[in-house]
Amino acid sequence: MAKIVIPTPLRKFTDQQREYEADASTVKESLDQLTEAYPDLAENLLDDDGNIRSYVRIYIGDDEIGDLENGATEVDEDTVISIVPAIAGG
C-alpha cells in the first residue's frame, strides 16, 4: 500500500481526487495502478516510451525518484508518493 498525492493540474484526470491509495509493493506498480484506474492521466504522466514526462517529478517523501528504473523502490503503507510538476519556462 502507498498513498499517491496528485497535484492540482492533474486532478482533472482523477475525478478531482487529491490522493490515491495503491495496493502495490513498488513505486512503479503504484503508478501503474493509478494510470490503470485513471487512463486519461497516463498521457500527462508518461511519454510514448512509458517514461515519466520531463515536466513531472516523482518523490517519495523528500527524495526524488529519478526514473522508473528507480521505480523498483519498495513501498509500504506509510509511503507517500508525490507527483510534482516541474514548473519552468522562458
Binding site: P9, Y55, A88
Partner: peptide, 16 residues
Amino acid sequence: EPSEHDLKQAMPVFSY
C-alpha cells in the same frame, strides 16, 4: 506571450 519553452513545460488546467 508564451515562448516555445513555456509551451513545452506547461501543465494542463493551470493559468499562466
